[in-house]
Design a protein around this nucleic acid. Structure first.
Ligand code: FES
Ligand code: FES
Lengths: 150, 150
DNA sequence: GTTATACCCGACTCTTTTAGTCAAGTTTAA
DNA sequence: TTAAACTTGACTAAAAGAGTCGGGTATAAC
């Protein structure tokens, strides 16, 4: 199980955008160079980011992309969902092909809890945090401290 | 990104085994029926579980598998590693094909923290917990409470 | 000692997902 | 008019995953 590059690239690009926020529209080719992501691939990703209202585009020469929302209000979860990078931990369907043929399997609550655990992290960290490169590490420490006390 | 069935099946099977612990060696075909997992696939998984000393096998008629360790000492993480179901959140390599061509990218700490976050959960929950079907949910609540206080 | 049970093992195929490309547009500042 | 830069749909190739197959070997029961 591996975080796909779709999700990682999208976040990298959004962070790059946030860091150059005050420089006007940022071209994909400049992001491409800085983040080592192919231009075509970025175009694909930004289509989805725009459709999800996370970025705004400016066409024509001098154009590029701008954040449509403030960095502190964009969570990693927003970005991941936008590019269809969902983290699916359960495999239950209601039909005959599901986990336990319709009913809940003995591990359902485990995977469901894992899913929530991950979701919580992704919804807590914003790209502002990533730019600052510290808050989510503190978050993590607090979590571990709590758990180890049990 | 999706939890693979390799990992989910392995955990399901181990939990099944734990629940029938006191019945002597458990055959794979009985697990196969209860958990809706093909026998061949189970054999593949149990090979790895045995190589990692999580289960013991008894050959011949009346044979089957037994837990090699107590349920309270087997974490989800143990099982997942045994069947090569690692959750990889970073993509850094040291060579020229890595994330940022050798150096750290701006999102490295984020993914690294996510990886630790998941790892912590998987190392905290045991199959005993899953059998009881409650402890890891409490764990989760404690985490969320801590985080929401920040 | 034959037989049936059930574990053991390597290799293989099929399917799905992901990564990345390509070839065509359209808008607009200079 | 031109060139920069976004827009779009479709396409291909590579990787990972799921699951199968055909052979084994050990051993309890008869
Ligand atoms: S994971 Fe939901 S029923 Fe098995
Ligand atoms: S994830 Fe480690 S360098 Fe990018």
């Amino acid at each position: 199980m591996q975080l796909t590059s779709r999700g990682r690239y999208a976040v990298s690009a959004m962070v790059d955008l946030a860091k150059h926020q005050n420089e006007g529209p940022i071209t994909l080719s400049s992001i491409s160079e800085r983040q080592f992501i192919s231009l075509s691939y970025l175009e694909q990703l930004f289509r989805k980011l725009r459709e999800n209202n996370l970025v705004e585009s400016v066409r024509g020469p001098g154009g590029g992309y701008l954040l449509a929302v403030e960095p502190k209000d964009i969570t990693i979860s927003h970005i991941m969902s936008a590019v269809n990078e969902t983290i699916q931990t359960t495999m239950c369907k209601t039909d005959e092909t599901g986990c336990h043929r319709g009913s809940r399997c003995g591990t359902h609550n485990l995977w469901s809890a894992l899913g929530l655990h991950i979701k919580f992290f992704l919804e807590t960290v914003t790209i502002q945090n990533v730019c600052d490169d510290k808050d989510f590490l503190n978050t993590l420490k607090a979590v571990e401290k709590t758990l180890s006390k049990q």
